[in-house]
Design a binder for these strands. Structure first.
Length: 294
DNA sequence: ATCCGGCTAA
DNA sequence: TTAGCTGGAT
């Protein structure tokens, strides 16, 4: 049972969000920046940072000319700062090896740092209007429900979902690109994880509705903890270095997590390993690339 | 508590 | 294939 393109696109025209990276004239590089920021991060938190970044780094070479520390500071509290580091590296590769432009084909996009299965296809579709299946968490949920009649996606592999969406895409290329955006939008606004707004859903047919909205069967998703984890400690350590204007003493870092010194040391070490921070010759700590020119 | 337009290393 | 990675809003 297909997901009706006419109904979905009509709804997207009237009810789709006017997101800044969907405006006409936004470059592929700027769309790529938005996609990296949107990985695991809500739209409302990304939008203001993205607006700053498109002005500050309108082309890859502009970002490549900035230091890692500058990029990490501008990243602010978006979270998962390894994304910022990879985007910076990506900008360097684009500037040096691709003539300061974003490649169009999925295979090449996949080879770039920080770009995986979702982001490569998102850029190919949203920046270049190609007919490529784009599968994110929203699309997986919509397909699981409307197509297969399941409350939630089953296996974590997206291979099946890519094949499903490939089948769903309209043959007309620009129409297929809009269909992908609309499918994601439906999952973000209507077919949400909790309390889906089925009464507002534009789809004339939905296998999940027709099955009586059965509950999810199978293992529950693992809950991702945050409080008390190394991630929280890393976040606190990074915050100290972001807010400082230069290298800081070890003691400045120690005070943000005084309880568990073993965990604190482990977190600090992992930041060094990830290349997010560095230690100066005199033993002070700083954001990566703090000393390099930008 | 739960959810965000995932990627990478192992 | 899975674990680990951030932080804010609801």
């Amino acid at each position: 049972m297909p997901i009706d393109a006419e109904a979905l696109l009509g709804w997207f025209d009237t009810d789709g969000r006017d997101l800044p990276w969907r405006r006409p004239g936004v470059s592929a590089w700027q769309i790529l920046m938005s996609e990296i920021m949107l990985q695991q991060t809500p739209v409302v938190r990304v939008a203001p940072i993205w607006e700053q970044w498109v002005r500050r780094w309108p082309v890859p070479s502009a970002m490549a000319a900035s230091s890692q520390a500058e990029v990490l500071r501008a990243w602010g509290k978006l979270g998962y700062p390894r994304r910022a580091l990879r985007l910076h590296e990506c900008s360097r590769v684009l500037a040096e090896e691709y003539g300061d432009e974003v490649p169009r084909d999925v295979e090449t996009l996949l080879s770039l740092p920080g770009i995986g299965a979702y982001t490569a296809r998102a850029v190919a579709t949203f920046a270049y209007g190609q007919r490529v299946p784009v599968v994110d968490t929203n699309v997986r949920r919509v397909v699981a429900r409307a197509l297969h009649g399941n409350a939630e996606p089953g296996n974590p592999s997206t291979t099946r979902d890519l094949a499903d969406v490939e089948q769903l895409l309209p043959e007309n290329v620009p129409r297929a690109a809009r269909y992908s955006a609309a499918l994601m939008e439906l999952g973000a606004l209507i077919c949400t994880a909790k309390n889906p707004a089925c009464l507002l859903c534009p789809l004339p047919e939905c296998a999940w509705i027709e099955a009586g909205r059965p509950a999810h069967t199978g293992p529950a998703k693992k809950v991702q903890k945050f409080a008390g984890t190394d991630r929280q400690v890393r976040g606190k350590l990074m915050s100290v270095l972001r807010e400082s204007t230069g290298p800081v003493e070890r003691a400045q870092l120690d005070i943000v997590w005084p309880t568990d010194t073993t965990q604190r040391d482990r977190a600090l070490d992992s930041l060094l390993t990830d290349g997010l921070i560095e230690q100066t010759e005199s033993g002070l700590f700083a954001l990566a690339g703090e000393g390099s020119d930008g």
